[in-house]
Design a binder for these strands. Structure first.
Lengths: 199, 199
DNA sequence: CGACGCCTTGATAAATGTCAAACGTCGTGG
DNA sequence: CCACGACGTTTGACATTTATCAAGGCGTCG
């Protein structure tokens, strides 16, 4: 999937909540978050998107969340109408788009599931997700700060911090510095969590 | 979209978590819930589906949640592979499928957003959702019991019950009997909630 | 009509949020 | 190059919300 590459500085808006849905986006490099800010100031992160991830694929006329660059990022942009028109004549592309959308459903549902668990389970699930998506060996280089993690997990930064401290104390992880996490015990990360999907 | 209509009795399983994804489903009549049961017995409802809603549209090889009939229900069933093959040659169908999937993303994200709010906000949001989807005038005939509502909202039945009692006391709603809710003050249902999407 | 299961209500406990302050780190300017 | 300052993080004490445990009332369905 092609499109024009555009660079975004750290913490800049890619599109805003309420803006018309014109484009579909694909991360080339960097990291992107989708954000919703409630009227009373509470902030909720819908998801993180890393290299090769597609975001902004929405059905309504308006974006229901805004998107921001977590770090300096490059993003490919293509008009949604163009993409849909291309897909009308290209069954393979249409299927790929459908798969992308269905994948996003799965992510959102996993996210929703996670939000009803305990603080420690949420943090563990977050670390597992980051392990699956951006780890290099046992090392996870987080692009985002505690506030983003907290708003993604529906917790406060204090609770996230305390939980990470607990996990460090239990030698499940090791944190040489704030945004670097070394996974020491992947088995412990799985503890007390969802029944695995596999039978 | 066609397919074979099948009847399911109340509380029977339509498909199970971990089973291969073979079919896509459309509710003809009744109500369906998707469910995930955690290893420790906690139960989480991913969503409710009513007449004309499509469910079971997943990307993996296995269902990540199971689906059950909330009440006696009739459901149309079509093979996913058949549907995808048809869509490859029919741009309009492909777009419709994509829209369905994107709609589901929006629902799951709204659900996730709701789960970080207070108990009263969650119950209010649930009532608004039911108002949008199955109300007749000011009357909402809930097909599900408190336990389903609680597991959908990530609360206990006790908390749901207490909150409904509060809302009744405040004359926001009126409950002549357990599963019948009359909306008395829609404005109050909107209070203290998400910034509306519209600008 | 009766019994089971659901719903409601109450008392108590546990988890997380809030408020406040100290610590560390990183970037900047002298 | 070093010192300062701002900001993010961690830690602590306390408040608040919701879960848990328990019991009674009531509706619903056989």
């Amino acid at each position: 999937m092609l499109g024009i590459p555009i660079k975004f500085d750290i913490d800049t808006e890619i599109y805003g909540e309420g803006e018309p849905v014109e484009f579909v986006y694909k991360v080339v490099s960097g990291a992107v978050r989708t954000v919703k800010v409630l009227s009373d100031g509470r902030r909720k992160i819908g998801g993180f998107y890393f290299a090769r991830d597609i975001f902004g694929l929405e059905d309504g006329d308006e974006h229901s969340l805004s998107a921001e660059a977590v770090t300096a990022s490059t993003v490919r942009v293509i008009k949604r109408r163009t993409l849909v028109r291309l897909a009308a004549d290209d069954g393979e592309l249409a299927e790929e788009l459908l798969m992308t959308a269905m994948h996003e459903v799965a992510r959102a549902q996993r996210h929703a599931l996670m939000l009803v668990m305990t603080a420690q389970e949420r943090v563990k699930d977050f670390l597992r997700e980051m392990d699956e998506r951006i780890s290099v060996g046992d090392l996870v280089q987080l692009p985002m700060w505690r506030r983003d993690i907290a708003d993604y997990l529906g917790l406060t930064v204090e609770t996230v911090s305390r939980t990470i401290t607990e996990l460090s104390a239990a030698s499940t992880i090791h944190c040489p510095c704030n945004r670097t996490i070394m996974l020491r015990d992947r088995a412990a990360l799985q503890q007390g969590t969802v029944a695995t999907v596999s039978i």
